[in-house]
Amino acid sequence: MSRIEGVLKSLKEQGRKALIPYITAGDPHPDQTVELMHTLAAAGADIIELGVPFSDPMADGPVIQLACERALKHGTSLRQVIGMVREFRKTDTKTPVVLMGYLNPMVAMGYREFADAAAQAGVDGVLTVDLPPEEADEVAPLFAERDLDPIFLLAPTTTDDRIRAIAEHSSGYVYYVSIKGVTGSASIDVDEVARKVAHVHELTALPVGVGFGIRDAKTAAAVGKVSDGVIVGSVLVNTIAVHQTDPAALNQALTDLLHPMREALDNQVT
């Protein structure tokens, strides 16, 4: 059983929902990322999505675009991001880490070399925004051989046939994109998300994480009620932007954001 699967199974047994924060690696500075990951874990993260910065993040809104620019200003590369996970694993062997990003840095590194390095460093899953399952023939076996969970997106526009097909190619969890839009843009319609996620649950046994548009404890709780986990990104990345010059204040601010979400999710225990 993969680390992701184990965590989600144990949460399910406790009737709890996963809190999955996202930060962009290398933002505000590569030296701070490992510490921020530990902060997230201490503040109640069940899984960490670690963004791999890319020069052209087409599915992201301005908040994460700027985070990528800050990280790239310091030359943060995919190899370095994998190194950060290796460092994180020295003291945290239980919190799963999912790398989230775009395909081209992986192409540049080479699929096999990437898969080897990621698995050895203790990466658990890989979510590549611009890699639909149709184009994943080459990477799928490389990931499978190394127990890296391929995480794919589902969108409001995804048809039933595709939901089934994507679930077939996924392990760990599937990521339901709650809105039509880029990260951090619109507010989500919780009723609509509830309806859609319930439908996804009918089509696959995999856990469903919901992301895009979750900003506060109230929304997190509402979305947690209808899904297996909530993914929180832009609001955290925005906090990083605000406190980019003050590491101590930043760690505190991230903790202050996640704690209420953790509590709200746990108060939803069913």
Binding site: M58, A59, L103, V129, D130, L131, P132, E134, E135, F152, L153, L154, A155, P156, T157, T158, T159, R162, I166, V177, K180
Partner: peptide, 20 residues
């Protein structure tokens, strides 16, 4: 059928656009 010209082309987009 998948939009490939040899090793090139294809459809590398986020899921929201696939249906369109």
């Amino acid at each position: 059928a998948r939009g490939h010209f040899g090793d090139f082309g294809g459809r590398f987009v986020s899921e929201t656009l696939m249906d369109s």
